[in-house]
Design a protein around this nucleic acid. Sequence first.
DNA 1: ATAACGTTTGTTATAATATAACATATTTGA
DNA 2: TCAAATATGTTATATTATAACAAACGTTAT
Lengths: 132, 132
Amino acid sequence: MARAQTLSRNQQIVLDIIEKAKGPLKAYSILFNVQKKGINAPQQIYRALDKLIEMGKIHKIESKNAFVACRSSDCEISKATAFSICESCEMVDEISDTKLSKYLSGFNHKKGMKFKRFNLEFFGICKKCKKD
Amino acid sequence: MARAQTLSRNQQIVLDIIEKAKGPLKAYSILFNVQKKGINAPQQIYRALDKLIEMGKIHKIESKNAFVACRSSDCEISKATAFSICESCEMVDEISDTKLSKYLSGFNHKKGMKFKRFNLEFFGICKKCKKD
DNA sequence: ATAACGTTTGTTATAATATAACATATTTGA
DNA sequence: TCAAATATGTTATATTATAACAAACGTTAT
C-alpha cells in the first residue's frame, strides 16, 4: 500500500520548488535549483516527479514538458485535468470547473471506449499580455 | 503568403508515411523509414512535421510525442482537437464530435482569457484490449 | 529573362528531455 | 526483527528537438 500522505525527502524538495514557482517548471530547471541540496542526477528529479504526479500533488503540462503544482483540492488523483495556457507569457492556470469536469467525465466515445482519465489544454493570450 | 495546397517533396514523403501508419508515429521512427528516400537528418523530419501541423494535415499527440494524420475533413487549421488514446495498445483515435467541439470552443475561463485553441486527450483501454 | 524574395533543402552540431540498470539504504509492517 | 517495499545515489545512455549556416528552388514583378 502506498504511503498516503508523507513525502520522502526528495519528493518534498521537488514539491516545494514547484509550489513556490510562479509558473510551470521544467525537470532540468528543477534539477539546477536543487543541486545545492545534494540532488545531482535527472533520475532523482524524474522519480520524484513521477510519484508526485501519482499522488496528484502536481500535474504535467504535456504541451510544454513542464510541471505545475495542483491547486484544486479535489484532484487527489489526477484523472480529470484542464489548463489554461498563455502562448505569450507561458502562464498556466489550472481550471477547476465542476460543469466542465462533469461534462468531460461523462463523455463517451461512439466507438465504445470507456475513459478513465482526460487532460485538456486551452491556449490563448492572457489578459496581462493583451494589454501590452 | 503560404502555398495553400501543394506539399513540398519532403512534406509529401512524411505525410504519406503518417497516413499509411496504423497508429501514431514518432519523429525518429519516421526518419528511419525515409532514409532510403534520401532524408538523413532529424531537422528534415521536424521541419516537415511543423508545416504539416500548421496546415492541419497532421496532429501531434502531446502525451506521446507522436504524430497522426488528421482524419476530420473540417479541421483545416488545428484549433480544436480531441483524441481517444488506449493506454494498453497505444491506439489513437481522433474524436470528431460536433457537440463536444462546440462545447469546448464556447467555453470561457472565469479569469477572462479568450481561448484560440484547445487540445483534449482521453485515456482508457480500448475494446480490443479489454477482451484480452 | 532576370533579379529579388520567400521557402525548402541539406548538413553538422548540439541542446533538452527522459529512461535503463545496478548497488545501497531506509522505512514499514507482519 | 526480518522481509518486503520504497527510496536513494550513481553512471551511462536513449530519445526528442533545435540552432546555425549554406545552397537550391519556386514565384512574381519588372
